[in-house]
Design a binder for these strands. Structure first.
Length: 112
DNA sequence: GAGCTGACGAACA
DNA sequence: CTGTTCGCCAGCT
């Protein structure tokens, strides 16, 4: 019958696309928003597969510690920080400054 | 066609 | 307190 295959990667892309400028979120936050409690990995893997998607600001997605863990996946290891600073997000030592202040929670902003 | 790898996070010992 | 283990799925070789 209608075997809906939950395209987790695609779901992640849609949430990431909704991240407003000057804000960042975490893999776990997106995963939890999608109902994937332990699916933080899925979000990270999805970003890896999002290479080539212009509407997926992967630089706005960081790990729970606010660290730019995925910076090495960009064209240049500093591009991620450049993009974040361009959005008004301060980055220092590969970590987002005032991470909790610029943190964007999809459950709170978009609503569950 | 099958196996390995990979941008995390939380729970447990 | 720290270290380790489990869970989850798709893409690539």
């Amino acid at each position: 019958m209608n075997y809906d295959k939950p395209n987790y990667f695609d779901l992640v892309y849609q949430v990431v696309r909704e991240i407003p400028k000057g804000r960042v979120t975490s893999y776990g936050a997106i995963a939890h928003y999608l109902g994937l409690k332990s699916g933080a990995r899925m979000v990270g893997y999805a970003m890896s597969a999002s290479h080539g998607l212009p509407d997926v600001p992967a630089q706005r997605v960081v790990n729970r510690q606010g660290l730019l863990t995925g910076r090495h996946h960009f064209s240049t290891p500093t591009l991620m920080q450049e993009l974040l600073e361009s959005d008004g997000v301060k980055v220092e030592n590969d970590q987002v400054v005032d991470f909790e202040k610029v943190f964007w929670d999809p459950e709170k902003e978009l609503g569950i």
